[in-house]
Write a protein that binds this DNA or RNA. Structure first.
Length: 663
DNA sequence: TCGTGGGCTA
């Protein structure tokens, strides 16, 4: 192989990295780097008239943070000048490739090392892999390294990287422990970096006894040590313990606070997360970072805490925090989940740069508000801008179709998934499909869809079908389905029995309802208790069904009685008892539905505010009786009520609901 | 010229 002369070589050595012209790297630089390298090295390049650059010139060049293309060119030069065996050059070359996250090229250089690479080079490669999803490769290299023995023995750097690699790969648990043994033997355990990576690894694997032992035995600890161990307890849900340590921690920084807040959010302690965030704001020395803001916006979204969420938005604006993709996605999601799809849209429309994340959160937001047409429209806009949907985008679109009864559109998108987007439908997509068909009353097609699934249907899929049976009153199919749910969820039955009992109740088959309830209590599988939240003046109030815990409960009960009286007299509301679970007499049944948590919440909302929208968040699907009560309340009291239930939003206005009674 | 802790939004 012969290389064309390299005329503009001097350009390469100017202080600025020049933009190199195309012909400079003859064909593809890969040619020089791949298997031909060894022959290239021996190819006489002496035909060119200029003097050869020494290896230090290349080193200087690599220090100037060249781009990937430039590194490849330098690499090509190195090879053509016969310097590919100069080990002092290969290190910087590997380092540069790693800096550009091009591990395959770094690996090629590494594998062609003429002698045994020194420890630092091994370390570079091990560390590089530890940051990737294939962090097992770090372990593989580590083993190779050990096999060679001295003089390339592992040092404290190596161990740090190996523990990091282990912590990022769930299958490497056992390895981490074995390597820990070596560390103790070699006396590296007292190094703070090694210790920290160990504490972190055990914490991530939820092995707090080991994490705490390393923590306690460390000769010195810093913020990172403390933060790692706090994270470990928080991730297990031991938030009290985590908080104790957090409060003791010296020199807490933004990352420590992020870990604490995320710990609360991860275990659904959203109010505690908000409280923790407020604590953070009282500490002037530390400012919330992106991770904290994303977590806290997620807490607001889950709670439906609009005022708090708005406050965060203002905080972001005032402090000129960059609306990154993550932050804007979290904002859009927060507004959508707090019932303000208009605000979500405004954030979205105001973005300078949109990416798949922001588009997807907008689309999913529209879908949960039952704005199917707009959802599809936004989706096509996204495609027009050249974005390729991922599985979650498509999930949002499908969801939008099923919530709006756009059956044909939904079916067509589902069938296009593989041919058009190359995305194989997952369980969740099938769940959507079944929901889509089932709600529309095409129960047999939905049943066929479940049977056609390439994977085992999960509880969600069966439950969607069962729920459709309830809407359309198909007892026969419902009974056939319940066994599948019982098989999948032997403990709780995934709420299947509640649905079945509701199905019987809606058909007036009270004997069957009693049977199911008995079966449920025998197996100790009670339904999940209903719970609603409402935010008044920035405080989130929580209500359970027939709540007795709220400090103003007697006042609220009085108000609720008044509300129910007024809507039956003025709005013609008749309590619907179809979905009451118990076989009670009519009067008791009325009483039982009266105290559903969303009714308590709406009574409290009417009691506490004179005007404006009442926003309620609920953990379950809203029942038929509450739905019709809300409609009448919106008419009689002339108030807009927005209820977020487990799967979507209902906006009640002038006696109607945005779901057009299709939910 | 290698080090350790962060998020969960679809």
């Amino acid at each position: 192989m012969r290389f064309t002369p390299l005329p503009k070589l001097s350009l390469l050595f100017s202080t600025k990295i020049p933009r190199l012209q195309e012909p400079f790297y003859v064909q593809s630089p890969l040619v020089y780097i791949s298997s031909n390298t060894s022959s290239a090295i021996w190819e006489p390049s002496g035909t060119s008239s200029f003097s050869l650059p020494s290896h230090s010139t290349f080193v200087q060049l690599l220090k100037k943070r060249p781009s990937l293309t430039q590194i490849k060119q330098i690499h090509a030069q190195v090879v053509t000048h016969g310097l590919a065996q100069n080990t002092s050059l290969l290190g910087p070359l590997i380092h540069s490739y790693i800096g550009c996250r091009n591990l395959s090229f770094a690996r090629i250089v590494f594998d062609q090392f003429p002698s045994l690479p020194p420890t630092i080079i091994w370390n570079l490669m091990i560390q590089a892999y530890s940051k990737t999803p294939s962090s097992q490769e770090s372990l593989y290299l580590f083993h190779q390294m050990l096999a060679h023995g001295r003089p390339t023995s592992a040092d404290k750097y190596t161990f740090t990287f190996v523990f990091t690699a282990c912590s990022r790969h769930p299958t490497l648990r056992g390895y981490g422990e074995n390597v820990h043994g070596m560390v103790v033997k070699d006396g590296y355990e007292s190094d703070i970096f090694v210790g920290n990576s160990l504490v972190n690894m055990y914490s991530i694997f939820s092995r707090m006894v080991d994490a705490k032992r390393v923590f306690d035995e460390m000769p010195q600890r810093d913020v990172i040590t403390w933060t790692s161990v706090v994270k470990g307890y928080a991730m297990r849900g031991e938030l009290v313990r985590a908080r104790e340590l957090f409060d003791m921690m010296p020199g807490r920084n933004d990352v420590s606070w992020a870990v604490m807040v995320a710990g609360y959010v991860g275990h659904r302690f959203y109010n505690e997360a908000l409280q923790c965030f407020n604590d953070m704001l009282c500490h002037d020395e530390v400012k919330p970072n992106e991770a904290v803001l994303v977590s806290i916006l997620s807490a607001c979204a889950h709670l439906g805490a609009l005022d708090q969420g708005k406050w965060i938005h203002v905080y972001i604006d005032k402090n000129r925090i960059l609306l990154s993709s993550n932050i804007s996605t979290a904002l859009i999601d927060m507004y959508a989940k707090c019932g303000r799809i208009d605000c979500a849209r405004r954030v979205f429309d105001g973005l300078h740069k949109r990416d798949l994340l922001t588009w997807t959160s907008m689309i999913s937001g529209l879908s949960m508000h039952g704005l199917g047409a707009e959802c599809l429209w936004t989706f096509s806009e996204m495609l027009a801008e050249g974005f390729k949907p991922d599985d979650i985008t498509l999930l949002g679109v499908l969801n939008g179709c099923s919530h709006s009864g756009l059956v044909e559109e939904g079916l067509s998108i589902f069938h296009d998934m593989i041919p058009l987007w190359g995305i194989v439908p997952k369980l969740e997509h099938y769940g959507c499909l079944i929901d889509l068909l089932g709600r529309a009353g095409r129960l047999e097609s939905a049943f066929e869809a479940i049977k056609s699934m390439p994977m085992e249907p999960d509880v969600v899929a069966w439950r969607a079908l069962l729920s459709a049976c309830r809407i359309h009153g198909d007892v026969d199919l419902g009974e056939r389905i319940i066994n599948h749910i019982a098989e999948l969820c032997p403990g709780s039955h995934g709420g299947g029995y509640v649905l079945l009992s509701n199905l019987y109740a809606s058909m007036g088959q009270w004997e069957s309802v009693t049977k199911v309830r008995k079966a449920m209590s025998q197996r100790g599988s009670e339904g999940c208790p209903g719970c609603s939240w409402i935010e008044i003046d920035g405080v989130v109030h929580e209500f359970l069904a027939a709540d007795k815990l709220h400090p103003r409960i007697s006042e609220i009960n009085k108000k609720l009685n008044e509300v129910l009286r007024r809507i039956s007299i003025e709005g013609g509301y008749v309590p619907s008892t179809k979905q009451v679970l118990f076989d009670l007499n009519e009067e008791d049944k009325e009483q039982a539905v009266s105290w559903h948590s969303e009714k308590l919440a709406v009574a409290f909302g009417l009691l506490s505010t004179q005007e404006g929208t009442i926003r309620i968040t609920k953990n379950l699907r809203t029942c038929e009786d509450c739905h019709s009560a809300m409609k009448t309340i919106s008419l009689v009291f002339n108030r807009e009520i927005v209820v977020r239930d487990r799967s979507r939003f209902h906006t009640f206005r002038y006696g109607n609901c945005s779901c057009t009674d299709y939910w």
